[in-house]
Design a protein around this nucleic acid. Structure first.
Lengths: 214, 214, 214, 214
DNA sequence: AATGAATGAGTTTTCATTCAT
DNA sequence: TATGAATGAAAACTCATTCAT
């Protein structure tokens, strides 16, 4: 049955029982979390179509029926997984951004967290092929969360722009996608040939300064 | 099976045209091309797993058996399709680069062609999830062609670097992937909100100059 | 996957009946048996390649998926079917041999049961064309069971030989195959023209006494 | 193109040009013979369903279309092949029987030739699964030729019976099938463990004398 | 007449989803 | 409620047969 890794979760729960949200003994969400965790791992590593529902259930130590009870369909499970991933990542980034001031460091923080997150989930850059197929609610949440990540970047830019440190004639949303795209490109095609820290640095530098000798 | 090496055959064919292609039903002229064209369209629009072999055959106006006779498997058809696409794109770019001098224009040429090519083939940025699954020969050709595209970019950079117009302390291969990644990001997440020409310009400018006010 | 070793499990099952078979939908009682029964009928009548997996499922009143869940492939289903058939036949024969003394009657018993068994399963004399294609375990079990049938014959002969009632200079294994071969030959080419009892008698007499006038 | 083994045929043809039948430059039958020869080899070794029409054509060094032009269908090619095989075998046996007198030697002659013939064509003992599927004409010819082989045996028996050397109360047709069946059984299940000459001897002895000590 | 490229009906197999317990 | 056995629609692939040359 495998009932795999509960890892460090148990002590954590003890430590933070106070945290308002969802700590109050809901029987199902635990199970839901386990599934999402497994799904993240598997989908992230192999991509949507390469993962069987059975695999997720097995890996989560959960009956396959439960996966369907919780998520309704494989597609929705995937959506939930990706959404959850974005949420976590955005939370991490937001928390980390609190301490940081300079534009370069803010962007480095974002890039570092995102690249680290996707380093083991390389397939998540692929994302929902066709969010249109999702139930309306999921589609919206998906777009929202994915947008959130992009907005974290564009917000940094917008502020820098407003405060005159970067050019003001730019489309910050577009630039945000450029930054995310660079990360993906490096992730996919250069992960074997470059050190993560160097990649982060190269990306941020390119983004801020460009290639031109100045 | 037969169908083998076309590489060095070209001169030979010239020599013995009379003896070849004699027995049996003559191949339908552009059959293989027709299939590739349909496959490009369908895979490009919907992605590998969303396309049925039957669809490709139907769309190409060809029997399904012919698809398998020509390509052996759906996976190999996909590989052939993508490889062919890269080849065409690279050819186009190389031809177009002939006329162009400045770095900015060279990069703009590359970006324009690539974005135009993928504009209707958005799924091709996804590419082979797992080239490992291909027969050795296909895998190699795939890596070669994909590499070719990246090299077109890095070559421009390298030259510019050598000639002192851009910084020399950069990893040009990494930067090439950044450029391609930006294109993909914009393609995927901003195609509804931005005009193609603006996107091209934004990407090249960002790449060369960065965001920083100078 | 699970489904594993039934051999030594029997005692265990008795011990822990309560804990097992608890979770999830309970297996449809004789599902596997139902499939084997249908497969026996169809394969026996028409031979391996003439039977569709769908037919077996339909005939068994079972979903096609269940056939694959239980047996993994058509080839393995066939193996299981033949093996099961031999087992049953050998059991029957062994049970029937208990009561019988004379060599002639012992052989008649074997021949009668075997011919009756194959009378409706004429294709089973064909057997596995190429047991090599089976998973190792199945191949072994197949050879074992097929050998078992031959050994039932050769054992009778060996005993008769030891006790001096038949010639001692004979290769009993070879003779066993001769006997089985005769049954098949008659089965296949004379079933329309002879009564079963006469055939049995003719075979046993020929086997023991030969054609020669004495 | 392979144009395979013509072996020792060429000299033989030179030697016996006189032989009336079909030596007179018929353009097509040559081709037909080549196909039948290949088909015999392949069907004999692997069985009907394991052989592809392409294989036969390739092995015969002939276009696949020619196979269809000559035989109409794979099923009919198979029939022709088997019929031809029986014909040859029967001819050989009849020729060889001319010189021989005693019953034992006559049977030995038959068994030796048949076993030798099938030794490399083990699948031919399987024969037509369902001759009913053939066009009427082929079905008839098949039954005739197969019957011919059996009759060669039963004729020997009949004569021996008439002349009082073997028991007269026997069904000679049935016995003939017994003899052929024994050959097949040994062929299939004992070919690894017994020398051909010993098998022949054992079969004939069993057939004539039975197992019983006399 | 001979050839082999093209074809598509027919099969096996997979796997998301359902459902009895 | 949670489970995993059962299901069958969907898909890839094969190969006997056809047909243009």
């Amino acid at each position: 049955m495998i009932r795999s890794s509960k890892r460090t979760t148990t002590p954590v729960r003890t430590r933070r029982t106070a945290e308002k949200r969802k700590r109050g003994r809901r029987p199902i969400p635990m199970l839901r979390q386990r599934i999402i965790r497994s799904a993240t791992e598997l989908f992230g590593a192999k991509g949507f179509e390469q993962v069987l529902t059975d695999e997720v259930a097995l890996h989560a130590g959960v009956g396959k029926g439960s996966v369907y009870r919780q998520f309704g369909s494989k597609e929705q499970l995937y959506a939930a997984t990706v959404i959850e991933g974005f949420k976590q990542l955005c939370n991490q980034i937001e928390a980390a951004l609190g301490d940081v001031q300079s534009d370069r460091e803010r962007l480095t923080t974002i890039v570092r967290h995102a690249m680290a997150y996707f380093w083991d989930r390389r397939q998540f850059f692929v994302l929902l092929r066709d969010p249109t197929k999702l139930p309306r609610a999921e589609e919206t949440r998906y777009r929202t969360e994915r947008g959130h990540l992009a907005r974290l970047v564009s917000d940094v830019l917008r502020q820098a722009g407003r405060e005159g440190r970067i050019r003001a004639d730019l489309d910050y949303e577009l630039l945000a996608e450029c930054l995310l795209g660079m990360m993906r490109g490096v992730q996919r095609y250069q992960r074997e040939t470059v050190r993560l820290e160097d990649a982060i640095d190269a990306i941020v530098s390119l983004f801020l300064d460009g290639c031109k000798r100045n």
